[in-house]
Design a binder for these strands. Structure first.
Lengths: 302, 302
DNA sequence: GGTTTCCATAAATACAGCTTATCAAGTTTA
DNA sequence: TAAACTTGATAAGCTGTATTTATGGAAACC
């Protein structure tokens, strides 16, 4: 079969043709493409010669696509724009002044937000955009250079990663919650409290069942309580004194330290998993994204 | 906006990338493209460098597209194949061993068929394909280099043309039709005969009304008769002795000369229009198509 | 009639893309 | 275990094509 290369003198000439056709002017096309008018004229002439078709009618001070040229132009435009868009998406990850970080709403609220002031101070030139999503979206497809995800890196073969924090879980309640209540002495005492459950709609997260199992308490003994599907709302409920929830150390550690949340019992569920900063393996990162990654990883571990 | 040129090192590299991705091998791609393996390796390396993305994983004795590469490859393939198809269609008109001639079924039957033996003798190397259509199809769109059409060349600004025969119309009947009937002496006598009408569904052709008008006979006096929508069938009906029809000289002249059809009356309706050989203006013709055109125009006028 | 603004053409030039040559790596096989 | 084979990477150098520079011609417009 005739290859595309044999059909046209050079694929580059198609780009010239596209611009010339769109602008109906060789001179304008040459300006747009940053080359001389002669080069455009030459490229078009060779393309026409090669295809054996007149693509342009040379009129006074302009050129006009012939009918055949019009048809070909439409197809070339479609083809090139398709490629153009794809190439632009690829590059979007690696360049650009802004950096998009994909993470959960919980991570955004409890980890990023408290550190944003410091971020602005240390990396003032970077326009950081946090994209929260509780789906595990496709960074490559979305053109996002950086994300925070919990889990096993082996599950993301197309991404490189660096651990940010281990997954450690303990019960917390609001500072005022214990007033008028007796603090639980043992893990089993917690069964008598108002438990707030996180019901992740898309991901699977550790639950009260996991936590109680780890201390040898049968999951069937766990009372039903408040079911909330967003971790930010879970913690807000806890802060409002509505009950006890599981706290992820890397998220709530700061609140515990400042005293607005209170740890209950001494048991910590350690899943062995880590939260990671991850980025697409095959795509080189922009300077800015690299700086953001280094900044994330340099934050003191809670 | 970033132009496509700035996104990729050269558009040619996309062709190399497409082949390499499809074949999962630089060496195989180099063979297909008729270049060296080194050139492919170099082109891909530059493309990756330019896009800032790793497109291939180099494995033992093969390369494999990365996820990002896969995505980009799909888009590039689509884009290039779109252009490829369009370019091929353009070229199909100008090259190729066969020549397609578009004409009406009537012209095919009564003009081409009687001359085909001679055509084969004079241009044996040409694979002539006659495409009959009673629509006025778009030669450019169909990739057809040559057609025969009646009418005014000014109506086809995108085509060049050369007249083949004037439009001359006279009544004819079958050789046996007059047996037992009195031959019409005047044009008006024809009104007493069984007239066969051609009812062109798509084009407008001259009718009995036109013919009678030209000799000063009111169209309202014309009797209804057989209505047939294909001129080939009209003439077959006439040959079968079913009645009298209008005969176009360039089509039925040969049948009249050989005696199987008989001209009636002396009046000839000359519309002033011509039948033309036409071809797309903007597309250069293949050698073969040119020969066919010259052959058509060199045929002795009936 | 001069001016302007397009496109075409010719000659000269630069440099991208290609080839040649060689190396490295990894699997097969002997 | 080492030699052979295949495939990709790399370096250096060459070639040819795309581009520029320079010029001319045509068509409108003032």
């Amino acid at each position: 079969m005739e290859t595309l290369r044999s059909l046209v003198p050079s694929i580059n000439s198609l780009v010239v043709f596209e611009a010339a056709g769109r602008l109906s002017s060789f001179t304008a096309a040459s300006r747009e493409l940053g080359m001389t008018q002669a080069a455009v004229s030459y490229a078009i002439a060779r393309l026409e010669e090669h295809l054996g078709a007149t693509l342009f009618l040379r009129e006074y001070r302009r050129v006009r696509l012939t009918e055949a040229g019009e048809r070909f132009h439409a197809d070339v435009s479609i083809g090139l724009s398709h490629i153009h868009r794809s190439a632009r998406d690829l590059r979007a990850v690696t360049t650009g002044s802004h950096v998009t970080l994909s993470c959960s709403t919980a991570f955004a609220s409890f980890w990023m937000v408290p550190r944003m002031a410091q971020f602005r101070e240390e990396l003032p030139h970077i326009d950081l955009r946090i994209q929260t999503s509780d789906h595990d979206l496709d960074l490559l497809g979305e053109g996002i250079p950086l994300a925070v995800r919990g889990g096993d890196p082996n599950h993301w073969p197309n991404y490189l990663s660096e651990p940010l924090a281990p997954e450690e879980i303990y019960p917390v309640c609001g500072a005022g919650y214990l007033a008028g209540r007796s603090a639980p002495m043992t893990e089993a005492d917690l069964l008598l409290h108002q438990l707030i459950h996180l019901e992740e709609p898309y991901r699977t997260a550790a639950t009260w069942a996991d936590w109680f199992s780890a201390v040898g308490i049968d999951r069937r003994r766990i009372p039903k309580g408040l079911q909330i599907n967003d971790y930010v709302l879970v913690i807000q409920s806890v802060l409002a004194g509505q009950g006890v929830a599981l706290g992820w150390r890397h998220l709530v550690g700061g609140l515990v330290d400042s005293g607005v949340l209170v740890r209950l019992t001494n048991h910590v569920l350690t899943t062995g998993l880590q939260f990671h900063v991850i980025w697409p393996r095959d795509i080189s990162m922009s300077q800015c994204a690299q700086q953001v990654r280094e900044w994330l990883l340099a934050q003191p571990r809670v």
